[in-house]
Amino acid sequence: MSNALVPAEQTGAVKAAGADIANDFVTMMVADQLFGIPVLTVQDVLGPQRITRVPLAPPEVAGALNLRGRIVTAFDVRRRLGLPKRDADKPGMNVVVDFKGELYALMVDNVGEVLSLSADSYERNPNTLDPRWREVSGGIYRLKGKLLVVLEVSRLLNIKRGAGAAEAA
């Protein structure tokens, strides 16, 4: 599936260009949109997990899960982006990121491969982007036939700002 997303020759070409690791992204799909997270922030990629609900938590927090004895907060990316819930029959995956010493599992539909992207294909957030998306996006990479939205973990997890947007919607 990930191969289909990104043609192999393109990956090779970018790698050959000698981009350093800071420009390596873990790619993931959320509601048919390609997203990327800097590879260094990612700790783990997990399959479907048993998640304990946390009552009264912000709607974006799906619950908590156990990752080898550490408690990880599961974060619903779809919810954060104002997207509809994932179909119940699709299991989804979790990308575990470390943010300020705490682990968060970003719940996405699918996880693809790691891409090295060149700065040439980078664009800042276009103004026409949904404000809620603009809030969490660090910019967009133009890929062949696809656009990759860079997720800024710190902004993604800052739901204090997002809460207002969610209410407004």
Binding site: V54, V61, G69, I71, T73, F75, K100, E102, I159
Partner: peptide
């Protein structure tokens, strides 16, 4: 174990555990 900072505002919980 302390709850994640994102949940710290919820006064009902003093922590979580496995």
């Amino acid at each position: 174990k302390p709850v994640a900072p994102i949940l710290r505002d919820i006064s009902m919980f003093s922590g979580n555990t496995i």
